[in-house]
Design a protein around this nucleic acid. Structure first.
Length: 511
RNA sequence: CGGGGUGUAGCUCAGCUUGGUUUAGAGCGCUUGGUUCGGGACCAAGAGGUCGUAAGUUCAAAUCUUAUCACCCCGACCA
């Protein structure tokens, strides 16, 4: 058992922090609520960016960059939007630091109009779109930006909710309501496909209720995932903003009908929170478990040797394995790269830079096993003198910690890829099975209350209503996670009001 | 913003109640040397701290007082 990780059953929150620490994904920063994303963690974000950016481009979007600072007045233009974000904005009020007689520094030169550090960019982008869009011929505008944002939350948790976080925000403008709606749903599909195929994270697509939707949106759609402690996590959102922002920012164009009209806009985003979701959905008491598609290191080779002679013998054999896995060209290229201590890195995939590493450190084999296991590396090869003699190796699979003897001739890049794909699917299926096992139905409010306590999703007939939702949240701590797209189309009694309705929702306690 | 808590070595913390044998300690981690090595070894030597900050009380402050700052936990709020 891992000695530096608290088991999930004892303290789930601590387990989550321990896993992050053991895998060196992130550190606390000197500023409250902020984190440093370390290389191991950032590599996961890079994988997320790589995969999503590809999908965005494939659906016709282009990237741009809008500024971090937003005039305070912009925030006030859309009524609901102000309401939603006013409480959590960081504000820049001065432009200089002045040295005091006692040597301390004091902000000086106050700004006439304070600047807001973006909590999201609808407002600046709306402002720019009003200038860019003149005619229906300018539409649609399909722009995405990768950036950081700040939301001054009261409580923070690494990756899941930090004061500053990295995300992607897509902002589009369309000629018609139907096009905007199509875009909103299309991007939700992109997110769902990405979550399921890349992060191996099964998600439920649905709509948010009024009380849970994005401030300023007409409708918010989301993908919801279930974590191992039975809590739900919103993994991505896509908003149909209707003409709300177009009206607030005067995004108008001359239509085909020769009339001035407001554009229809959308926005959609996912954040570094996805890293938290990935950690919480798949990892175990031994540490991080990463889906192969986002794992920075896909194979760690742990050579076992005693003394120079054995080391030379094993090294020669490991070299054969490497050539079989990544090819001679890459082995030669790696020889020219700077090494990280005694860990050699070989790129298994030249495009994603996912790597095979060989751990030549002068440490005990057990230490190395734990080291790579806690970092979530999908496969480890254990290679010692006995394996050299047998022309074999021990393959260890992170997901289920199983062992398999492999003969050298079996080893190839294609073989490894198949193994990785199999793990990817296995992880998805495992997470899906967990979600299915933790999704129940309630027909009465009492039943809802008692089921919600056990964690997981609770499906029931419910008529979305602000007051009812607030009351239920107060009594059960659960919220409507979404109104799933897949409905039974049967009628039933609302668990709260008893009214005969056809709307089914998912309740859960959420992050 | 309300309630609670904590600031002492890179990390986790002891020491504070009752000020003085503490020249500030332990474990983990780190460095060096040796024995080890197929799932978290052991021995030895070593590096590392103006005890959060500032003022005060005192012959004497990590320890008492006051102020201040920071962070953590619980709540309201949230991707």
């Amino acid at each position: 058992m891992a000695k530096n990780i608290k088991p999930r059953s004892e303290d789930y929150a601590q387990w989550y922090l321990d896993v992050i620490k053991a895998a060196q994904l992130a550190d606390y920063a000197p500023v409250k609520g902020c984190m440093v994303i370390r290389p191991e963690g950032y590599a996961i974000w890079e994988a997320i960016q790589r995969e999503l950016d590809q999908r965005f481009k494939d659906t016709g979007h282009v990237n741009a960059y809008f500024p971090l600072l937003i005039p305070q007045s912009f925030l006030t233009k859309e009524a609901e939007h102000v309401e939603g974000f006013a409480m959590e904005c960081a504000i820049v009020t001065h432009t200089r630091l002045e040295k005091q007689p006692d040597g301390s520094l004091k902000p000086a030169s106050p700004l006439d109009e304070p600047l807001i550090i973006r909590p999201t960019s609808e407002t600046v982008i709306g402002h720019m779109y009003s200038q860019w869009i003149q005619s229906y011929r300018d539409l649609p505008v399909l722009v995405n930006q990768w950036c950081n944002v700040m939301r001054w939350e009261m409580r923070t948790r690494l990756f899941l909710r930090t004061t500053e976080f990295l995300w992607q925000e897509g902002h589009t403008a369309h000629e018609t309501e139907a096009e905007a709606q199509e875009e909103t749903l299309k991007m939700l599909d992109v997110y769902a496909d990405f979550a399921e195929n890349v992060l191996a994270l099964p998600v439920i697509k649905g709509a948010k209720t009024d009380s849970e939707k994005f401030p300023g949106a007409v409708t918010t759609y989301c993908i919801e995932a279930l974590m191992q402690d039975g809590k739900a996590l919103q993994a991505g959102t896509s908003h149909n903003l209707g003409q709300n922002f177009a009206k607030a920012f005067d995004i108008k164009f001359l239509g085909r009908d020769q009339k001035q009209q407001h554009a229809f806009t959308t926005s959609w985003g996912v954040s570094t929170r996805l890293i938290g979701a990935t950690i919480m959905a798949h990892s175990d008491d031994e540490g991080l478990v990463l889906p192969p598609h986002v794992a920075p290191t896909v194979v760690a080779i742990v050579p076992i040797f005693r003394g120079e002679q054995e080391m030379a013998k094993v090294r020669e054999y490991v070299n054969k394995i490497l050539i079989a896995l990544v090819g001679e060209e890459e082995v030669a290229a790696a020889a020219k790269r700077s090494k990280r201590g005694d860990i050699e890195t070989f790129f298994f995939d030249k495009l994603t830079h996912q790597a095979v590493v060989v751990d030549w450190r002068d440490a005990r084999p057990g230490d190395k096993q734990y080291h790579w296991e806690q970092r979530g590396v999908p496969f480890r090869f254990e290679v010692g003198p006995r394996d050299v003699d047998a022309n074999a190796m021990v393959l260890k699979k992170r997901l289920d910690r199983s062992k398999e003897i492999i003969n050298l001739p079996q080893v190839s890049g294609g073989w490894m890829r198949q193994k990785l794909e199999a793990v990817q699917h296995e992880m998805y299926n495992k997470a899906l099975a967990y979600r299915e096992a933790n999704t129940r139905s309630a027909t009465t409010y009492d039943e809802l209350k008692s089921l919600v306590k056990d964690g997981g999703f609770v499906r029931c007939f419910f008529k979305p209503d602000r007051v009812a939702e607030a009351k239920i949240k107060e009594e059960t701590k659960a919220t409507v996670r979404c109104i799933p797209f897949t409905q039974s189309d049967k009628a039933g009694k609302c668990v709260f009001s008893g009214e005969e309705i056809t709307t089914e929702v998912l309740f859960a306690q959420a992050y």
